[in-house]
């Protein structure tokens, strides 16, 4: 539903804004495809969890946030982080474990954070970012700030206790948090539906009195509208909101997972709903030039090819960095005798 299929009048789209979304989605896709090449070349050292196919969630949520707003992400967070404004070069270096990485090579893909853009961390522990997000919102409240916090998590995360504790907390303290459940249908290699009682994230949020909506996560236009409205509500002091966004990851759980447990037809069906293509089609229908749409992709691919090459040329961190930033009090070094 990205435009009338019957060739009716083009929808009245905010083209500049949506081109920015498209550019960002391509940058995310190109970043992760480059990271997969980096993994194949042995440069990316640890596990990565690609979000290919889920890019519209990252852009709809994060591009509607202000820079000062805070973001808590997950193990599948490259897209969120890029869309929040983190530097792609520093991110790729982080995946490579190199100097100049967002975390100096100490965190890797699952612990990317960029406090300069309000990105307070991916997380290696499913659901753990939820209490952290509500605490960040609590701090904003105490300071009298106007920022809000966005917290993204997977459908698997709603079966851990911190989901309940965090949503309850956000509601009773009436905190400015936008929760986004990025429901790709899978908890690692098991179907989430087989593990989840009831109707899932939106229903659970509603049971706590948190307004929630179920959305098509591959429809960038509708998602952008919904995210913007929810963020406006949260910013207006109306308390927490939850978006339950249905999408799909095209790759396996990690880059190393060939996902043999999935039906090929299921994957193909979701490929057909590619969120980037759907947005590009909508923009084409609205009269955006094909060359500009193509440029969105080629520019992103060129950028990430450079990012990849530069990361590969970056030095390793100095070994002594392993002793830095442990804690202020007490000597972290085990004394040698």
């Amino acid at each position: 539903m990205n435009g009338p299929a019957d060739g009716g009048p083009p929808p009245n789209l905010d083209r500049e804004r949506l081109l920015h979304h498209l550019d960002t989605m391509w940058r995310i896709r190109a970043f992760e495809e480059a990271a997969l090449r980096g993994l194949a070349d042995g440069h990316v050292r640890g596990a990565i969890h690609p979000s290919i196919g889920q890019e519209a969630v990252a852009t709809a949520v994060c591009l509607n946030l202000a820079r000062a707003d805070l973001l808590l992400s997950t193990h599948r967070g490259h897209g969120h982080t890029l869309a929040k404004g983190a530097d792609a070069q520093a991110m790729m270096r982080e995946l490579f474990g190199r100097e100049g990485g967002t975390c100096g090579g100490k965190g890797g893909s699952m612990h990317i954070a960029d406090f300069s853009v309000g990105m307070l961390g991916a997380n290696g522990v499913v659901s753990a970012n939820i209490p952290i997000a509500v605490g960040a919102a609590h701090a904003i409240r105490l300071r009298g700030g106007t920022e809000i916090v966005a917290c993204l998590f997977g459908d698997g995360a709603i079966n851990r206790g911190p989901f309940l504790e965090g949503l309850n907390w956000a509601k009773i303290f009436h905190l400015p948090v936008l929760f986004v459940c990025e429901d790709n249908g899978w908890s690692a290699t098991t179907r989430t539906a087989d593990l989840t009682a009831g109707e899932g994230a939106a229903a659970r949020a509603q049971s706590l009195g948190i307004p929630a909506q179920i959305l098509d996560g591959n429809d960038a236009l509708a998602l952008d509208e919904a995210a913007r409205a929810a963020i406006d509500d949260v910013r207006a002091g109306e308390g927490p909101r939850l978006l339950h966004v249905r999408t799909y990851r095209i790759t396996g759980h990690t880059a190393a997972d060939a996902a043999p447990y999935r039906d090929a037809a299921e994957v193909e069906a979701w490929r057909g709903r590619d969120p980037i293509r759907r947005l590009a089609d909508a923009l084409a229908h609205a009269g955006v030039d094909a060359a500009r749409l193509e440029e969105a992709r080629t520019r992103a691919e060129a950028e990430m090819a450079d990012v990849l090459a530069n990361a590969a040329a970056a030095p390793w961190p100095a070994p002594e960095a392993a002793y830095a930033d442990v804690q202020d009090i007490g000597d972290p070094a085990v004394r040698a005798f």
Partner: peptide
């Protein structure tokens, strides 16, 4: 001096978030 729910994970987790956010 905030009265919280009986949610130890969230009490500690929220404190982490609140500390990261400057309190």
């Amino acid at each position: 001096i905030a009265d919280t729910p009986i949610s130890e994970a969230c009490i500690m987790g929220a404190a982490v978030g609140a500390a990261l956010a400057g309190t």
